[in-house]
Amino acid sequence: MQTAVIKAIELILAGDRELINILLVTARMSLSSSLIALAVGVPLGLILGAAVFRGRSVFLVINRTLMGMPPVVCGLLFYMLFSGVGPFRHYKLLFTVELMILAQVVLITPIVIGNMENYVSGIAGPVRETAKGLGLSRMTTLRLLMNECAYVICSTYLLAFARAIAEVGAISMVGGAIAWKTNVMTTAIMMYTNRGNFTLGVALGLILMALSLIVNILVTVLQRMISK
């Protein structure tokens, strides 16, 4: 373990070009996919949590099912759609970071929707009743509801980012873990472990944890600022 920590520090200090590439691909993939999932999932979660409409429970069941979708199933689906015999082969996206991001968005968005829906459904009734009692317009009520969600959006983002940065199943299938192109921290750890290079695997794991810690600290600081 001590060797791995020293190795991790050495790798960072030496500015290893391959490591930097892996870090950049990881950051691009996890930040893009978690932010897109947040942009899509937050409004949908708000609607599902606050609105009363026919078929709402059907949407809820579908979303809860998608929340539990195994990443390899998602990866397989995208592989089939974008491979040489798939209907989307012309886009030539297989083994690209773009398709890895797309697969991640499909995996993470239901989690964002579910988390938002769960929170919003708990407060929407009291917020609506209180706002109506004060004679506020629908737009003002919606603005107040969104304002109430600011805090939970931060924690939802952390959840989405954690899922994105830790993902391995789907992205290794659609990205192929190609060195200098689609290799990310998790797939690199797998690769080095398979080669028997445990020290490098653990070193990468430590850097991955450090990255996750930095994002968590930043979002927690933002959350504290919002709560004030």
Binding site: P126, T130, G135, N147
Partner: peptide
């Protein structure tokens, strides 16, 4: 019409 519900919401 103004209304104060039993469990009025305290906005954050």
């Amino acid at each position: 019409v103004g209304y104060l519900p039993q469990k009025a919401y305290a906005f954050r």
